[in-house]
Simulated assay, not measured.
Amino acid sequence: MNREQMTKMVKALGPEVARELVDAASRSAPGRMGTNRATHEGSVYASVANFGAFTKSVIALGRRTGAAELLDVAKRFGNADVQKAVQLSKFDSAGVLVPIQQSGELVEFLRPEAALLKLGVRAQPFKGELHMGAQTGTSVFKWVGEGETVPRSAPKYGKLVLKAHKGMVLTDVSNDLLRTPGVGDAGVGEDLRATVADGLDDAGFNGDGTGAAPKGLFMQLDPAQVFASTGTTADAYLADIDKAVELPLVAHVRMASAAWVLHPTRATALMQLKDSGLFIFRNEMLDKGTIRGFPFVMTTRVPVTRVTFCADWRQFIYGIDENLILSEHDTRAEHDETTIRAIVKGDFKLRQPKAFSSITY
């Protein structure tokens, strides 16, 4: 069928509607023509009957342009061959009405779930690979007497390299579930968001850099900033908490977005500490949401054996190579299921490792 024939078929809809329908189908149907300019078998363009069934389905839907509704309506028009031609899995068929869905910006999409983002880490967009300059040493000041010489010194520099690591979630979902009011796409999307957020948190804290995985916080800590606890008594906890705050400060790290991150079990242990019958941290933690005056975030994605402090969480670089992409694929039609795929690409780097300290238990 040529453009003029299709336009005549739907002219009863009115010129504007006909033009919009034909233009939308033409733009959204890549590959419908073969190399010899012939339409593919089964395409809605292959015959007047096929395009007629496709058009009737669209008209019958009205404003309801969901994938499931389109299939249900299409079954009411034409013979078996025509019904078979209207397939969601083909872009040159009914697939023109089912665009790939893409979420909003990654940080906004995951902010309610991801502990790292609650801590105020720095989000850094990049593509493929990003090199960032970093100062690793300073020049030295020295007093000198008359006739004495001062040793030469100069600041030292290095670089951080962020490389894209790809993470995926692939799940098959029953179309019956997707059609269920109140669950459907919203329920599946919520589950994927939580899954991706949890996976990113796990990698951001615990990633070991093996295989395709990135390195996380605990693999990049400066060994001099990590120390074993002196005990679990009230005095020991107080001394260790004070030392964790002190270490970044004596390393000349400017305090900005300071905060703690710890496992809920460790937070419970802190709240239960007493001295002379009085709780040490409990009231501050419950009333102000702070430990020693600094806010804290609880997550099961950090080990229960660690309490970690950072003088400025913006020194943690949360590299975003590719925003979260959600797409639907009708690859399991025989099971009446839809495959949902989520992809994200990113990396994690500590800009100033001495900004962090960690107590191990």
Rank of each mutant, 00 (worst) to 15 (best):
R19W: 07
R19D: 08
R19K: 10
E20P: 05
L21M: 15
L21G: 06
V22H: 04
V22E: 09
A24E: 12
A25K: 03
R27E: 11
S28T: 11
S28N: 15
A29S: 04
T35C: 07
N36T: 11
R37W: 06
A38H: 15
H40C: 02
H40G: 02
G42K: 00
S43L: 00
S43P: 00
S43Q: 01
A46Q: 04
A46G: 07
A46F: 03
V48M: 15
A49G: 00
G52M: 09
A53N: 06
F54I: 01
T55H: 05
V58Q: 00
I59R: 07
A60P: 02
G62D: 01
T65G: 03
T65F: 02
E69Q: 08
E69R: 11
L70D: 04
L70C: 12
L71N: 15
D72A: 10
K75Y: 15
R76I: 14
F77T: 03
G78Q: 01
G78K: 01
D81V: 09
K84N: 07
V86H: 09
L88Q: 00
K90V: 12
D92K: 03
D92W: 08
A94E: 01
G95R: 00
V96P: 00
V96F: 03
P99E: 04
I100V: 13
I100M: 14
Q101E: 15
Q102P: 09
Q102F: 09
E105S: 15
L106I: 07
E108N: 07
E108C: 05
E108M: 14
L110D: 05
P112E: 10
E113W: 05
E113M: 13
E113T: 08
L116T: 02
G120Y: 05
V121E: 07
R122Q: 13
P125G: 09
F126D: 02
F126A: 04
K127W: 14
K127Q: 07
E129Q: 06
E129M: 12
G133L: 04
A134K: 13
A134F: 13
A134Y: 11
Q135E: 14
Q135D: 06
G137F: 08
G137A: 12
V140G: 07
F141H: 07
V144E: 09
E146T: 11
G147R: 04
T149P: 15
A154M: 05
A154R: 04
P155D: 12
